[in-house]
Amino acid sequence: MSLPFPHNIPDKHLVDRVLGGDKQAFAVIIQQTEALVAQMVFKMIQRPEDRKDLVQEIYLKVYKNLSGFRYQSKLSTWIGQITYNACISYLRAKQLLLPGYGLADEDGETRGANEAVETEEADNRIFQKQRTALVQQALEKLSPIHRTLITLYHQEEMSYQEIGAITSLPEGTVKSYLFRARKALKENLLLNYKREEL
């Protein structure tokens, strides 16, 4: 769909156009935020057939509530917040919210030197063995919320504050969740590598 709008239109201008009845401006909002919504929906919703309904629901909610947007954050952050809440509601309804790390919480501080060397070798070989694919697999094993936090921080390059705005979590909690998510991701990655070795 080609849109008669230049890039980087200010949020306020777009919102005013939509509220003034310009539907095409809403298509621009979709175009500008679709990547973020996709990141979050893909990380939180595993069933592809459910994603379509959820995306539709998210954007209809955005459209319906647009007059309530108060410019206290970027429009994309606000839409991210709606996306996050919609995904959480979906997971709650399906009772999929409980984290399943599939991983024993090892105390990294007490590892012996042998394991450290093993880790180092593993690390070097991960570079050669499709690191991206292994990271992707490791990420799949995290809980939906941890997956989303990792993605927002490391792929979407959002700040802790922005992630806090989306998830309605205090900044300190976001930091703490992210620390645990990264640690779990690292452990999952090691396990993946070891499985590949067997």
Partner: peptide
């Protein structure tokens, strides 16, 4: 390595 991998996904 991990952070680079996530960024490359």
């Amino acid at each position: 390595s991990l952070f680079s991998g996530v960024g490359e996904m």
